[in-house]
Write a protein that binds this DNA or RNA. Sequence first.
DNA 1: TCCCTCTTGTATAACGTTAGAAACAAGGGC
DNA 2: GCCCTTGTTTCTAACGTTATACAAGAGGGA
Lengths: 373, 373
Amino acid sequence: MRVSLKDVAVRAEVSIKTVSNVVNNFKHVTPATRQKVQQAIDELGYQPNLTARHLRKGRTGIIALAVPELENPYFAELAGAVIDAAARHDYTVLLDHTQGSRERELLVTQGFRARVIDGLILNPLELEAEDLAARADDTPLVLIGERSYDLPYDHIAIDNISAARAVVRHLLDLGRRRIAFLGSRGDRPSQPSHLRLLGWQAELAAAGVTADQALIGSVEGWSRADGAAAMAALLDAGQRPDAVFAYNDLVAIGAMRVMAERGLRVPEDIAVVGFDDLSEGRFGTVSLTTVSPDKQAIARLAVESVVHQLADGKAESATSGTAETQDATTGQPGRAGAPGRVGNGRAGREIDPGFRLVERESTLGRVRAATSG
Amino acid sequence: MRVSLKDVAVRAEVSIKTVSNVVNNFKHVTPATRQKVQQAIDELGYQPNLTARHLRKGRTGIIALAVPELENPYFAELAGAVIDAAARHDYTVLLDHTQGSRERELLVTQGFRARVIDGLILNPLELEAEDLAARADDTPLVLIGERSYDLPYDHIAIDNISAARAVVRHLLDLGRRRIAFLGSRGDRPSQPSHLRLLGWQAELAAAGVTADQALIGSVEGWSRADGAAAMAALLDAGQRPDAVFAYNDLVAIGAMRVMAERGLRVPEDIAVVGFDDLSEGRFGTVSLTTVSPDKQAIARLAVESVVHQLADGKAESATSGTAETQDATTGQPGRAGAPGRVGNGRAGREIDPGFRLVERESTLGRVRAATSG
DNA sequence: TCCCTCTTGTATAACGTTAGAAACAAGGGC
DNA sequence: GCCCTTGTTTCTAACGTTATACAAGAGGGA
């Protein structure tokens, strides 16, 4: 049988509240009493019932994290970072994955775990702005990932356009001219890959290079298989890019697989750059050059946002003070952007955790690699 | 303000209990009353407070899953499967990672999330039998993974020795003779990799091939970097294996990276087999042949074990009825082994979810590949 | 008509905790 | 010696739900 405060109280010959005071380290407890109670606690092996505590206090100490899919190592690594960041604030993480389904994302935001979580960190893929605007649940919510909504919720995301431009600029500097973008989703213009595609276009334009629409590879999703399919389609269409900027590392890895099958050498024939900096990318036959978002910072900032929202539900959270600077090759210092629309009693902030362009020569080729296009 | 049963009761002009009856779909409620209450619920947007419900019922609907590290795709994929399996039983998953630290594993088993989780699924790495034997917490516990303890807890794991023997037998059939095992941890004999090493030894012995101790590659951990280091060490020591059986896919991938750097061709010079069947392994420059544990089955069986333990804490759980058959190349039908020692009021079972040896020619070479040893 | 059963709904007491008020003892100033 | 203050402990009421016991009303058989 489980032992409660009452049992301890009986054993220590003291009131329930006194035991509670000892457990919660309240002042006004005589050392003698404290010791007597502590002894009873130890002897009985008392452990507080968190459910009851939370019912009383209105907080559960649990933060939910909802990502599209754990099978994607990026989200797995991010989840690990969030768990650690939450632990530093004495929070535990309830993990859910939405499979990139709008319905599941909707369900999560509308509090299907109602009253059992204190806050929610969500990486949406399909959710629309109106879905979020219609949200009735007042559980603190933080958004992470590329999708941006003009809504009063904190949003943690790196500057995807800048990151994409940095990649393209770098490839241009290396002498590449026919730079493909792999990972556009044609079906919906506001899809996550949109910003990276925009950055690709913008930087090419800035350099006076034509953004050849035929070099945009479409995908169904962003897995390795999708990357392979897109690369194969590109090659089958007769395209011969001298560089590939993939939406993420998984797409890049799938594409490289196809390149190997077709006898295209990386980086001699094609330079490849990914996004996410997965451990996986470092240990392929060639190491993948990639954009490395600071996952630790993302996790930390997201958790802090939730914690701050909980600390004072009415006042604006002040996360900007904790944003830190990255010593990034082409990075962005972490900065809190202009607050979004005010609503729900507080402002939504755009928070940039910063990124690094991790250059690994093996997929880039040394400076001025021969171009074949 | 959050709306409670009381608010609904007032609005529907009915007692609290009646509202509760409607919410819980109890019988003995007039259609008229039910409709009146339902309307009030809809109008007020009532959502039950799970914390309160759980305090009252003694169950939280949350299962904890503790794995060594989410960064390992195997555990990420497994976690995804567990989340889905739990959802089918209306359970939510609280995820934790122990970083392979004995202290954290100990903390988890001893109920640091006391009274907030209904059950625990743990994949231990460092935990000792005596740690588990001394466990005071009576929260249902299920163990998964290679480590086996003779203790009254359900244990879900494939037959590692059989799987390892199947791998080695297959390599022998292909004509390989100098088969290295990569991923032994020398420091502790009872470490997870032990069983696979035993299988390697046993099958070689059965085939009359000397198990050359020099072909055992030691690692610090089981990451890609560890695999690379172990492979490099083996080669630096002058060993020239014609096949490598790696403890897991990550180790295999790290090893293959080193092979590529040293100009060794896979599979022509060295055949490679891994363990876990990670998506990652399918998309390397070569597809990795691997042992594929049925992760869905592992997740399902683990969740079912917890659910059954909860269903009747005193009676023995009867998971054996649900074990299913695998159409496996070299697989083991899922079978419930002999129950372990009885204790704690119930028997601990060894449950085998089954595995498949997924043969991908690219890392094996066609039949009778030339041997260099 | 009375009593008994069956159905439906209501009051009340938990579950284990924390917060606030109230009670109690001890000590000091008048 | 009395009252007031200070420090410590106890008492009681929540938090929102479900479970148990019970009350009220309807219907049927004797």
